[in-house]
Design a protein around this nucleic acid. Structure first.
Length: 491
DNA sequence: TGAAATGTTGGGGCG
DNA sequence: ACGCCCCAACATTTC
């Protein structure tokens, strides 16, 4: 091939969980070749095994791809959509387009790493190079380790170590993309993927709630840093307040680079030093995302098996009825039910409430954390394998640096502490709205007269508690004895 | 990034 | 005046 022909040989950029055009290392590298850059996204339901995208994630993906496709057209390109096994699709596209280089961002899920290897191998056989770039995390998992060279298993020293390392932002690049040649077959239409729910369309009102896409991710970050971060440390514990960034789904889909968040946050702290403590706290939540991915990378069994081996013997005695009551938000504990209904209706749940409902499922209902993980996986717009697995294991007590098992949230006192005025519960459990604050978190304790005046009919309109808190707590601690007796026994 | 049980202290009512 | 008891408030320990 002449060098002039080589100059026109296209490069494929394979979009994955990095649906943005700014601050994208691999895309910048592709553009820097000076050759035409072709953009594609592949919906691959075959490679992830048990962890193919859940329903809420698919809703988000549909809209995020719509936004990305529009952004790509503004810079002269076209987002080519294809469905199928990624390696086979990429090999076809490269062959038909005459590309000898594919660039992408890394992912850290076990299945995704295997997939990258498979793509690398198959493309290699066809004379096509695959280049993978970091940047979906602040710190690549290989670059952070203890002095002994081992992966960290405790958050605090992990994050302390991370903060010694630089966070580099990509230099701004003017991205131009190219159209696909006619030699390549027709792309799929996004609508054919049926990513949006029908019958029933449970996401009917989500368009008012969520705005996927890079532009909105930036807008949300800016608004958060301008309006809310000053109250982050305390405010983030109160689910009725708008004190959190709600960037999780944008981050999961890579609509914004974590390095961009760090830089913008540090800039805000530099302009207003009084914010330093609050911004540190916010950044440490990004640290948990880093830590979860670090753990998933080094311990790929994390979504499947308890990290602490002795929990393999834990007697998860809870039945299907408990799980169903929890999923439907009908446990009879108002804060738990509010959280589960927020999740179902919006694809999201405030983090404080996530901890409470997860604790309730594992400890009050004695249901295996993996059942909760699975439900979250399907219902959260920000479902993320690393965060989800590590979060559930943290709550269950089986994870690395986990909450001690005996730390059992009391859903009544959590409500009284963090939703004192009852705004959150009244919003999501409207049948209790007229109850006075005093009984809002323990309607079973309200005198008949109070219930009648509030129009609350138990159990016709709102259920009795599925379990008694005291009894459930005692059973959970008794079940935990089984684990404790296993400690020291080699797992 | 808990809750509950248990322990300690000190003010005040009371005989 | 004094000791005693009660109990709220706070601290510590245990799960």
């Amino acid at each position: 091939m002449t060098s002039a022909a080589k100059d026109r040989q296209p490069v494929i950029y394979w979009f994955r969980q990095d649906l943005r055009l700014r601050d994208l290392r691999g895309l910048n590298a592709a553009v820097a070749t000076g050759r035409p850059v072709l953009a594609c996204y592949i919906l691959d339901d075959e490679s992830p095994g048990d962890w193919k995208m859940g329903g809420a994630s698919r809703w988000w993906l549909h809209h995020s791809l719509t936004a990305l496709a529009a952004d790509i057209e503004k810079v002269g390109g076209k987002l080519y959509l294809a469905r199928g096994e990624s390696a086979a699709v990429l090999a076809r596209l490269a062959g038909q387009a005459g590309a000898d280089l594919v660039c992408c961002s890394r992912q850290y899920e076990p299945w995704a790493r295997q997939l990258e290897e498979a793509v690398h191998t198959l493309l290699g056989e066809r004379g096509v190079e695959l280049k993978r770039y970091g940047g979906s995390l602040l710190y690549e998992p290989e670059t952070v380790s203890t002095q002994a060279g081992a992966p960290f298993k405790v958050f605090t020293p992990f994050w302390r170590k991370c903060r010694e390392l630089p966070v580099k932002l990509e230099p701004a690049v003017r991205v131009r993309l190219a159209g696909w040649p006619r030699s390549v077959g027709d792309p799929d239409a996004l609508d054919d993927w049926a990513l949006l729910p029908t019958r029933p369309n449970w996401a009917r009102s989500w368009g008012d709630l969520w705005q996927p896409g890079e532009k909105h991710a930036y807008a949300k970050l800016t608004a958060f840093l301008r309006e809310a971060v000053g109250d982050y440390d305390a405010g983030r514990n109160y689910p009725a307040r708008r004190a959190t960034s709600r960037l999780s789904a944008h981050l999961h889909f890579g609509e914004i680079a974590p390095a961009r968040i760090v830089h913008a946050t540090r800039e805000a702290a530099a302009e207003n030093p009084a914010l330093a403590a609050e911004t540190d706290k916010f950044l440490s939540e990004l640290g948990w995302r880093e830590f979860s991915n670090h753990l998933l990378f080094h311990f790929p069994e994390m979504p499947e098996e308890p990290f602490k081996g002795e929990f393999a013997a834990f007697p998860w005695l809870g039945g299907a009825e408990g799980l169903r009551a929890w999923q439907q938000g009908r446990t009879g504990y108002p804060l738990v039910d509010a959280g589960m209904r927020e999740l179902w209706q919006t694809g999201y749940m405030h983090n404080r409430v996530r901890m409470v409902v997860a604790s309730f499922l594992c400890k009050h209902l004695l249901v295996d954390w993996r059942a909760g993980q699975r439900w979250f996986w399907d219902t959260l717009v920000d479902a993320d394998l690393a965060n989800n697995a590590c979060g559930w294991q943290w709550v269950a007590g089986s994870g690395a640096d986990a909450s001690p098992y005996f730390r059992i949230f009391n859903p009544t006192t959590q409500g009284e502490k963090f939703d004192k005025q009852g705004d959150y519960v009244r919003r999501w459990v409207p049948e209790l709205a007229a109850l006075p604050d005093r009984y809002l978190y323990q309607p079973w304790a309200a005198p008949g007269k109070v219930l009648r005046e509030a129009g609350v009919d138990i159990p016709a309109a709102y259920p009795e508690p599925v379990v008694d808190h005291r009894e459930a707590r005692d059973s959970a601690l008794a079940a935990y004895d089984r684990v404790r007796s296993q400690q020291g026994v080699t797992a």
